[in-house]
Every structure is written in structure tokens, then in C-alpha cells.
Design a binder for these strands. Structure first.
Lengths: 222, 222
DNA sequence: CGGGTTATTGAGGGGCGTCAACAACCGTGG
DNA sequence: CCACGGTTGTTGACGCCCCTCAATAACCCG
């Protein structure tokens, strides 16, 4: 597997010296849909960067129900943690076939400590992710299910890099999983998706999705 | 106003040298209920620590509706930010009479940079807060309104340091504000509070609150 | 005591959770 | 190529939860 290091979000501003060092110490791995890359509660052994594909970040939510808090796409970093004591806060599972780059903890920390540039980049990324996540979940608290489905669809479009040009895309993400992004049932999600289809916002069939108007979806999501 | 520095969460592990330094550079201020301490979007001018009282942290949520994301009690730090560019992410307003300690940005940063101890403490506090907030808001996504009211009550009990011993406490927090903690209407909140009262979980009247069983409330909140 | 704010309560209706039956789709093996 | 069971998606029925509105009641302040 050929990792495109420069595509990794955290490394896009790094100098070649560090890219070279990192390059020599990485491992690459592939995961099929439904395979789990990281288990919630596991010891943190290193850092993963998604090289290609889509993964979901799942936590145990209210009364143990699964809750998908993010979709991860190419370039996103996972498995990091500023302190050494904590454990993986979420399960990461492939949705579409995923290839990742992996660095052992020791190597990654060597980079962190040797380059202020990388350290700042990583910290900024962390903070941005946390802010995005809490902004989103805050907003969800006040939204109707219909609004939340629209919101989830925009997240999906972003993760899959789908434009609102009506082009059909294959996605393995199920109704059940969309429901787990917004805390509702798959039946409810299905009904609302059909509404959106009837309103001409999108085309959706099993494993296939196309968008016609992000503007209207955004208006619904608020 | 006499600030009890050692009560501040972020400083509880600091050495006396820094406590002294900080002590000489602080200002103290008082706020009445409904007075705003920090405005969302304002420039970050320094750091505040709640010395006494209760404040609410409010953001503009979905379609501009107010959303109370946290209650702040004695010892909590606000107004900080790791980078200098960002602005206040939330409005802080007193609910009960509040007294705060304030340090100008320059002084606070001097401390941050001179003491690894304080820096780590501040970073750890930040991370913990962020984790608590996102955990909570994640859980809210999957909860019914009844469950969310129970959850909010437990937060209120924590902020006001109320035990479930049936003792009455005066609280200025309104039904409207409780509703804004969980994204519902004040009418709905009122009805559910009356349910809880009928079930013997608590006693609630305008501006007065007592708890009888956290265990049962926690069972409802999940 | 009076006027403004806050809390309670009811009625009505729509959103949405739940269940269940059915349909469509999948990969596998005959 | 078809058969077939398992998974996933769709749809309807039903009922409860909860949103909204509005009227009334309780409370607070000066």
C-alpha cells in the first residue's frame, strides 16, 4: 500500500525532514467494511491516519445504544491522545474499505517532541475536531428528527466528497447507521429519506445516493 | 472581596511561589443575577475564576435559540483559550450572585509559560471540560425529554451542591432556563417537574428546590 | 396593593417511536 | 441460471410523547 503522506491533515505543513523520518517508521494496513480498527477502551498503541476509505467513530451512548459521532475520511488522524494514561474513547470501524498508515506510539511521540511545527498542527487539529463535535452535538439537542436527518446527510456528503450535482454514488452506509448518527430509528430515517426524495432534494436507493441541492438541505437542517 | 485562591480548580496543585505571583496580579469583581460576565464573540482579555455563586454558559444554538451548555460553580475557570486568535465561544451570565477573580491575559500567560505545573493543570482541566461537555451532549441526542429533565436536575444539584436529603434550597434558575439546558419548552419542563414531584423524587416550587432521591433520578436519566 | 414576571395546566394536534408485515436485495450453493 | 435464506429497506397502523398556544394562577417587586 502506498501511503500519500502529504495528504494527511496533520502533516500537510511539515518539512520534508520529518516526512522522511515518519515515512520510514510507518506501517500500512487495510480493513474491509465492518472490520474494526480500534476498540473503545483499548490501550493506545499508536497513531493511525486514514489513507483512503471511510470509517465511523462509535461510542456507547445512552443506555448502551451505539452512537456514531463522526465519519472519518482520507487524511484524518485517530488514536492519538495527549496523555499516556487514557484509553481509546471510541470504537473505529470501517464503513467503506479503509487503508490506514500506522505509527507506533514511541515514533509518533518522537516527532511530536522534536518538531514544534508538528506539535502545533496536532494540537490545532485536536482542538478543531473537539469544537466541531461539540458544536454539532449541541445543535442536535434542539433539532427535530427531520432536521437531524438533513444534517446527517450533509455530513455524509462531506465525508464521501459528494457534490450536489445529481451524480450517483455507491455508499455502504446503512439506514441503521444513519439513524445511529442522530439517535433515531431506522424506520423513521427511511421515511424521512423518502420525503426528501419526493421533494427532489436527492435520490436514494439501497447502497446508492445522489444529491441535487445542498442549499435546500442546509435550509432544512437550519 | 476576598478570593480563596486555593479553591480554584486549576490552581489546587500549584506551588506557593506562583500563588503569590498570581495573587498580586488579580482583580476581583461581583455580578448580580442576570448580569453578563463575558459576551460571546468578545475579544479574550484574560481569565476569570468563579470565586462564589452560579453562572450559566450560553451559546446560540439551532436557529439562534439560546442553549445553556454548562452551569459554573465555585472554582471553575472561564475565558481561557490556548490560541490568541479565537474569541469567546459562549456568553457567561450570573444566575446567582457571582464573585470572580480576574487576571489579565499577559499575567496569566506569564504563569502558563513559567510553570509547567500550571500549564499541565490548565490543559488537563480544559480537556476534562471538553470531554464532559461532549459526553453529555452526545447522550442528550438519544434521550427523551423526561430523561433530559432528570439529567438537568442532577447537573443543577451538582452545581448548587445540593444533597438528596430533602433540604429546601433557594435557586434563581427559572423553568425557562432549565428548558434551555435540554432544548425543550418551559411548559413541558414544568409538567415533567410536577410529575417528579408527584412521584416523590423532589420538592419544587418557584425559586425553591429539594431532592429526595438521586438514585431514582439517575435511574430515569439512564 | 397593583403590574409584571414566572409557573401551572389544559386542549389539540402533529411528530415520532415502536412493531410488524412485506418487499427488495445480497451472497451462496445447488 | 435459479433457488434460497439472511440481511436491509419500505411502509402502514397505532399510540404516546411532546410542541404550541393560551388562559389562569402564583409569585415578586416596588
Amino acid at each position: 500500500m502506498n501511503c500519500k503522506l502529504k495528504d494527511c491533515t496533520v502533516l500537510k505543513n511539515s518539512t520534508n525532514v520529518f516526512l522522511d523520518y515518519i515515512d520510514r517508521h510507518k506501517y500500512c494496513m487495510d480493513y474491509s467494511p465492518n472490520q474494526t480498527i480500534i476498540f473503545e477502551g483499548a490501550k493506545i498503541d499508536g497513531v493511525y491516519v486514514i489513507n483512503d476509505g471511510i470509517a465511523k467513530m462509535v461510542v456507547k451512548g445512552h443506555r448502551g445504544r451505539p452512537l456514531i459521532i463522526r465519519l472519518l475520511k482520507k487524511g484524518e488522524i485517530i488514536g492519538h491522545s495527549a496523555d499516556n494514561k487514557s484509553r481509546q474513547p471510541a470504537t473505529i470501524t470501517a464503513v467503506e474499505p479503509v487503508s490506514v498508515c500506522f505509527w507506533e506510539k514511541a515514533d509518533f511521540e518522537k516527532c511530536i517532541h522534536s518538531s514544534k511545527e508538528i506539535r502545533n498542527e496536532v494540537m490545532a487539529t485536536l482542538k478543531q475536531e473537539v469544537k466541531n463535535m461539540s458544536d454539532r452535538s449541541m445543535r442536535l439537542v434542539q433539532m427535530s428528527v427531520r432536521e437531524k436527518v438533513a444534517d446527517a446527510l450533509l455530513m455524509i456528503a462531506d465525508a464521501y466528497q459528494i457534490k450536489d450535482d445529481g451524480l450517483l454514488h455507491r455508499i455502504a452506509l446503512s439506514r441503521q447507521e444513519i439513524s445511529e448518527m442522530i439517535g433515531t430509528s431506522k424506520a423513521q430515517t427511511s421515511k424521512i429519506l423518502q420525503e426528501f426524495k419526493a421533494e427532489g432534494l436527492l435520490d436514494i436507493r439501497p447502497k446508492t445516493l445522489a444529491f441535487f441541492s445542498f442549499a435546500k438541505l442546509r435550509a432544512i437542517a437550519g
